[in-house]
């Protein structure tokens, strides 16, 4: 098949207005806070919500004329369990083949082969209720891939799984995605997913695309609070673009420090959490900086400064530790 990937311009009034493009075989991570429109993007591509705009997959338009859901070649891995509870794992995977006209025996054979590839072949006869979360998710992935879709939609594929299970599955999924010829869109809350599985990241914020780029570029130069939080960076947006600095470069003091007023903020301690060997202090500096800031201090310093929620502190950062970028702004922060 001559595939030219995905080209979509999606407008779901009040929820999402986004342009998304991806080449064949490319894995696109979609990240953003709750309510940013991530799931809406996937359901719109699948044809499950009313939208205007256009979707083109593999050189074929899905919107002009509009294709019903069942004629779009999508594989859909939904958040949580969406396996048919009354069918066995094998019947679940065979369902899409049967619905598209494959004979019973052939469908069962191909389903079994995919279950084997995902390491759950021995569980083919079990119903979803008798599978663990990780096993069920493997079956769901097999069910999505067995129909050889042009567009694979993964909605938080590892959410609700134990950390270890998620880690193993992530590695395996990466293998299968490398063999997959179609386009993959993966909604995730986890920076690790984006960094390990995706070639490109689309950051959604408030129903708009706030940023696109390679995972490392987005992680180094976040343009939204959400991504800044995900990668653990302090990011301030100003008229000239963004400035970013790491929590470990922030100094915390209880007395007003000397130095440039531009890199000095007053605020109240919101919370303290252990972070590696350090204590990560979240400071409510919304008045001074427009957003909360993070600072890493040693446990000794935290005790000495008597840091506790509500305590008033000053934060400073050296100019040499600050990176500035994104002077063009790219219209990225102009929300609706």
């Amino acid at each position: 098949m001559t595939s030219s990937g995905l080209r979509a311009r999606i407008d779901v009034p009040g929820r999402l207005a986004a342009d998304v493009e991806a080449g064949p075989g490319e894995v696109l991570a979609v990240i953003g806070p709750n309510g940013a429109g991530k799931t809406t993007l996937l359901t719109a591509l699948a044809g499950l919500v009313e939208m205007s705009g256009s979707v083109e997959v593999g050189g074929r338009s899905w919107t002009h004329p509009p294709l019903p859901v069942r004629e779009r070649r999508v594989g859909w891995v939904v958040q949580g369990q969406a396996l048919f509870p009354h069918l066995s794992a094998r019947e679940n995977v065979a369902f899409g083949l049967r619905a598209r006209g494959a004979r019973r025996g052939e469908a069962a054979d191909r389903a079994q082969a995919w279950l084997d590839r995902l390491g759950v072949g021995a569980l083919a006869g079990r119903r979803p209720g008798a599978l663990s979360g990780g096993q069920a998710q493997r079956v769901t992935i097999a069910r999505a891939l067995v129909t050889e879709p042009d567009l694979l939609l993964l909605d938080e594929p590892f959410s609700g799984l134990d950390v270890g299970v998620a880690a193993t599955l992530r590695i395996e999924l990466a293998k299968h995605l490398a063999d997959f010829a179609g386009v993959t869109l993966m909604v995730t809350h986890d920076a690790l997913d984006a960094l390990t599985l995706a070639q490109r990241v689309v950051v959604l914020d408030d129903g708009r695309v706030a940023q696109t780029g390679t995972p490392s570029d987005v992680a180094a130069h976040p343009r939204t609070d959400h991504v800044a939080r995900l990668v653990g960076l302090n990011v301030l947006s100003g008229p000239d673009g963004f400035t970013a600095f790491r929590p470990q470069d922030v100094t915390v003091s209880t007395a007003r420090p000397e130095g440039s007023a531009r890199l000095r903020w007053r605020g109240r301690v919101g919370g303290l959490t252990p972070h590696g060997d350090a204590v990560r202090v979240q400071v409510d500096t919304r008045e001074a900086a427009g957003t909360d800031l993070l600072a890493d201090v040693t446990p000794e310093a935290a005790a000495e400064l008597r840091l506790a929620p509500g305590v008033e502190v000053w934060l400073t950062v050296k100019a040499t530790a600050v990176r500035a970028y994104g002077g063009d702004r790219a219209g990225s922060h102009d929300g609706p």
Binding site: A46, P68, A82, F84, G96, A99
Partner: peptide, 13 residues
């Protein structure tokens, strides 16, 4: 309707 939607994405009428 969740399962209906899943079935539709799998190509079922």
């Amino acid at each position: 309707e969740r399962y209906d939607a899943v079935a539709a994405t799998l190509g079922a009428s």
